[in-house]
Nucleic acid binder design. Structure first.
Length: 460
DNA sequence: CAGAATGATTGACT
DNA sequence: AGTCAATCATTCTG
């Protein structure tokens, strides 16, 4: 069956204002009255044939206009037009009204949000996206990862450009196609009934189709960004050792707070700032350091000595300076206070400080004997709690005292005995190897240290 | 290039 | 939430 016949059959059986077009041309008429009907059928057959072939011809034939005009002026055209109107009314239109615009696709919204968050869509951010900032934070070094940072930004910009170019292309293609279809439909509306609503609907279909293509673009862009991110932000993959300076600062803190190497949040922040790394990197470093130190104290002994000696020198200077300061300044100056909460343990005067220092170095104090040099320190800590007043000097002295204590123990008896049997044992470390557990006091724990007197360097 | 060192991650624990 | 311990992955070093 040819195309035209099929159309005719499709039209078959539809009543038309009392007429009945049945069976099309290929089918014999149901009733015998051929005479007049034959002429009409021939006409309809002609016009349908022309309609069916007009699209093929119109593209390459010069006289297309004439033919179209001829078609439009065909004497049977109004009849056919009304038939089509009736058919439409009875079939398609009722269905079409049902479907309205669908709600926004959550998947699309997700993609849009993500692209916006990554800085791919939306306004261009001057200093790079939030992701880039996160990259900087994650990989720590402010200076040493700037290359990767810019590399990341460059790649992201590249993705962004590709995305926008493609998106523009899609939009352009969509618009062109929509215009084309609309023109086509408008033209066709002269031969068949096409309501504006239908055109609108068709446009909607086209837009949906294109937006699904857009979604694919968005999806692949998201994937590209994710891959880029994972490649650049996976700190493990892009691990960089901290700068020597940073390691030095961290080690200095660690060994000068060996009794309680748990920096407070503020201390961590300060260390992070000093080392140009993040707070979490500081935490990581201390976590690793504590574990590794504890696991193999012997191995770290040399390092500990080095830093202790180093800090001791600065400590001595600092304390001397503080002493000088307290002598020249009014005793009521807040910074000069080295006050313990415990009334009986006030070391507010320069004399006290000097005595303390002297005692520490000579080990001549009654309660401060060298082999147990940790005792006094721990006692001080337990008494002092976190009640230092005049944070600056107090904090300095606190850590310096810690270091000094180390040096004292070194000079007093530290030999080549590495491997856990050293004179200088990490006073904070208990029998279990923990810094925190005070329930099983080791030999260095002073009898004066009360229960629950957890060392609190965190007051720094 | 192997092994050590080191920064980060993960899961369990408190 | 902070820590420990084990582990991974990368970088450094001899």
């Amino acid at each position: 069956m040819d195309e035209q016949a099929r159309i005719m059959q499709a039209l078959g059986g539809v009543s038309l204002a009392g007429h009945s077009i049945q069976g099309g041309m290929a089918l014999p008429p149901p009733h015998g009255h051929d005479g007049i009907d034959d002429g009409r059928k021939q006409d309809i057959g002609d016009i349908l044939h022309q309609i069916m072939t007009i699209t093929d011809q119109s593209l390459d034939e010069a006289q297309a206009k004439n033919r179209k005009h001829g078609l439009n002026c065909h004497r049977m055209k109004p009849a056919l037009f009304s038939v089509l109107c009736e058919i439409k009314e009875k079939t398609g239109l009722s269905i079409r009204g049902a479907q309205e615009e669908d709600p926004p696709d959550p998947q699309l919204m997700r993609l849009d949000n993500m692209l916006l968050a990554e800085g791919v869509s939306g306004p261009e951010k001057g200093g790079g996206s939030a992701a880039a900032a996160a990259a900087a934070a994650a990989s720590g070094g402010a200076s040493d990862n700037s290359i990767e940072h810019s590399d990341y930004r460059a790649k992201l910009t590249q993705i962004r450009q590709i995305y926008h170019t493609e998106l523009e292309k899609y939009e352009q293609a969509c618009n062109e196609f929509t215009t084309h279809v609309m023109n086509l439909l408008r033209e066709q509306s002269r031969t068949r009934p096409i309501s504006p609503k239908e055109i609108e609907r068709m446009v909607g279909i086209i837009h949906r189709k294109f937006s699904s293509i857009q979604m694919q673009l968005k999806q692949s862009t998201c994937e590209a960004v994710m891959i880029l991110r994972s490649r650049f932000l996976d700190a493990r993959r892009k691990r960089r050792n901290f700068s020597k300076q940073a390691t030095e600062i961290l080690n200095e803190y660690f060994y000068s707070h060996l009794s309680n190497p748990y920096p407070s949040e503020e201390a961590k922040e300060e260390l992070a700032k000093k080392c140009s790394i993040t707070v979490s990197q500081v935490s990581n470093w201390f976590g690793n350091k504590r574990i590794r130190y504890k696991k193999n104290i012997g191995k770290f002994q040399e390092e500990a000595n080095l830093y202790a000696a180093k800090t001791a020198v600065t400590a001595a200077h600092a304390v001397a300076a503080a002493v000088q300061n307290s002598q020249t300044n009014s005793p009521t100056t807040p910074n000069s206070g080295f006050q313990m909460k415990d009334e009986e343990f006030q070391l507010d005067s320069a004399e006290s400080k000097n005595t303390l220092l002297t005692n520490m170095f000579t080990g001549s104090s009654g309660s401060f004997n060298l082999p147990n040099s940790g005792d006094m320190f721990l006692s001080m800590q337990s008494l002092n709690g976190d009640s230092y007043q005049g944070a600056q000097v107090g904090a300095n002295v606190q850590s310096q005292v810690d270091t000094l204590r180390h040096v004292i123990s070194q000079t007093a008896g530290y030999s080549e005995a590495l491997g856990g049997n050293t004179m200088y044992s990490p006073h904070g470390l208990n029998a279990n190897g923990g810094w925190h557990d005070t329930t099983t006091p080791s030999a260095v724990i002073s009898p004066t240290e009360g229960p629950g007197s957890v060392h609190s360097d965190t007051s720094n």
